[in-house]
Structures are given as structure tokens and as C-alpha cells.
């Protein structure tokens, strides 16, 4: 079976998951969340199988271009969501997190065919640091995506009240979700930057060269460092923290996508 088609099906499954979550939100009670939970697991299973088969076929982990990494990013978002929702019972957040995963894998599907083909790795990418660097960054980005959702919902709940919105976690819970996922994301992003630096030192003899991707990852890191200091040392909470987490995720998106399309640099193979 063509692996691209498998990812198409995954995209469609996530679309329906999002629909179920949405219906659950606007309908009475929490009946549809069961369907959503089953469908999201089905999508995640397909997604995982697809990535494993892709890795076997390409003989490298799916991190070498924008198509592969978007598909993986989507997978990472769902993984982080599943872990968090099972540990902390944050199922309802799927209503907003799953559409993000859908957008990530959907954005990969609409790329031109040239960008989707399996290509052998260029010499610079042939390193065991590739896997650990990308996995760390992507899981970090996914955790930040969850905090972004928590931030948005916090602000939304401040503006409006309503029966449907009552299904969402309380503002206090959203604040906690925000903090927990930033904590996780910050450790992973730090790991991603460090492994990237070590790898760069092996490949180019410079652990830091102020390449746009590196610089933007540092900017992102600084935003979340500000978040943590403001929260832990100055006691910031609620609205201000929600805003920083939104700014932080915009920085993540620019680091991940914006840099590739708007700025050039050493990471240009990521296009």
C-alpha cells in the first residue's frame, strides 16, 4: 500500500475525530467523547504503523524534510495529548488539540509531490544525532501546542461563559495544564537545542553559528524561560501566563515553519 495514502486516511480519521469532539462540545452531555476517544486511537494506530513502515522503506527516521517532519509533528501532538489525557484526565482538550494535529498532517498532504518523495539522506543528516535531536524538538513543540490550547481556552473562558464552555476544564485547571505542558516542553526543547549543538559541532565544527533556525530556537527558549521565571519567581498566573504561552507557541511555529520559508540558513534541507 502506498504510504502517502495511509497518511491521507490518517488525516481523514483525525478530521472525523475533530468532528466528534466538536459535536460533543455543542451537544448535551458527554456522549460523543467515547466515539472521539476510539476514533483518535484508531487514527494514532494508523499513523504509527505508517511511520514505522515509512522508516523501514526509507531506511531512515521520518525527519529529513518538511513532509516527513510535519507528519511526525502531528504524531507527536497526538502522542503528547494521549499521554496527558490519560494521566490527568484531560480528554476534553482533544476538542482543540486534535484539530492542530489534523492541520499539521493536513499541511503535509497538500505539499507538492516533489516534496513528498522518499529521498536518501544527504551526508550532513547521516548521524545518530538526527533522531534524538528531532524527536526531542518535536515532542517539545507538541507539548507547547498543548499549553497554547490551554492558554487560548483560559482567555476564552475569561471572556465568555456558557453551558458548553463549562465542559472545559476550570480556569484553575487550565492554568495547571498550561504550566505542566510548558515544563515538559521546556525540558524537551532544551534537550533539542543541546543535541542540535552537539551534532553541529560534529558536522561543522561549530556548536552555535547563529543560523536563523538556531537563533529562533533560542528566542523560543527565552520566551519560555521568561514564562518560568515570571511564574515561579514573580508568582504570575492566569491571564498573563496564558498570553506568554500563546506568544511562545507563535515563536515555536516560526522556528518550525516560518524560518524554512522566510529565512535561509544551514537548516535549508528541512524544506
Amino acid at each position: 500500500m502506498n504510504l502517502h495514502n495511509l497518511f491521507y486516511i490518517t488525516t481523514i480519521v483525525y478530521f472525523f475525530t475533530a468532528i466528534f469532539y466538536f459535536i460533543n462540545l455543542i451537544s448535551q452531555g458527554n456522549k460523543f467523547i467515547k466515539f472521539a476517544r476510539i476514533v483518535v486511537l484508531l487514527g494514532f494506530l494508523l499513523h504509527t504503523v505508517g511511520l514505522v513502515l515509512w522508516t523501514i522503506k526509507a531506511q531512515h527516521a521520518p525527519f529529513s524534510n518538511m513532509y516527513e517532519s510535519s507528519v511526525f509533528f502531528s504524531w507527536a501532538i497526538v502522542l503528547v495529548y494521549l499521554i496527558l489525557s490519560y494521566t490527568y484526565k484531560w480528554d476534553i482538550l482533544g476538542t482543540f488539540v486534535i484539530p492542530l494535529a489534523f492541520l499539521a498532517i493536513g499541511s503535509a498532504s497538500v505539499l507538492p509531490d516533489d516534496y513528498k518523495a522518499i529521498q536518501p539522506l544527504v551526508p550532513a543528516l547521516r548521524s545518530s544525532w538526527l533522531e534524538i535531536h528531532v524527536i526531542s524538538c518535536m515532542l517539545g513543540y507538541a507539548a507547547f501546542a498543548v499549553s497554547f490550547i490551554a492558554g487560548i481556552l483560559f482567555l476564552l473562558k475569561e471572556k465568555r461563559t456558557g453551558k458548553n464552555l463549562d465542559k472545559l476544564p476550570s480556569q484553575e485547571a487550565l492554568d495547571t495544564i498550561n504550566y505542566k505542558s510548558v515544563t515538559l516542553g521546556f525540558i524537551l526543547l532544551t534537550g533539542g537545542i543541546i543535541t542540535g549543538a552537539i551534532w553541529a559541532n560534529f558536522a561543522w565544527g561549530t556548536y552555535w553559528s547563529w543560523d536563523p533556525k538556531e537563533t529562533w530556537s533560542l528566542i523560543t527558549w527565552l520566551v519560555y524561560a521568561i514564562y518560568l521565571h515570571a511564574r515561579l519567581m514573580r508568582g504570575w498566573q492566569g491571564r498573563k501566563i496564558a498570553w506568554i504561552s500563546i506568544v511562545g507557541f507563535l515563536a515555536v511555529l516560526f522556528t518550525y515553519w516560518g524560518v524554512n520559508f522566510l529565512l535561509s540558513g544551514l537548516h535549508s534541507y528541512a524544506q
Partner: peptide
């Protein structure tokens, strides 16, 4: 300092 370094770093990428 974090804020200033972040903003000036952005200038450097533009």
C-alpha cells in the same frame, strides 16, 4: 535581559 536579547536576536535574523 531575556526580553532585550530575544528582540535583538530577531533583528539579526531579519
Amino acid at each position: 535581559l531575556f526580553v532585550i536579547i530575544a528582540i535583538t536576536s530577531i533583528v539579526g535574523t531579519l
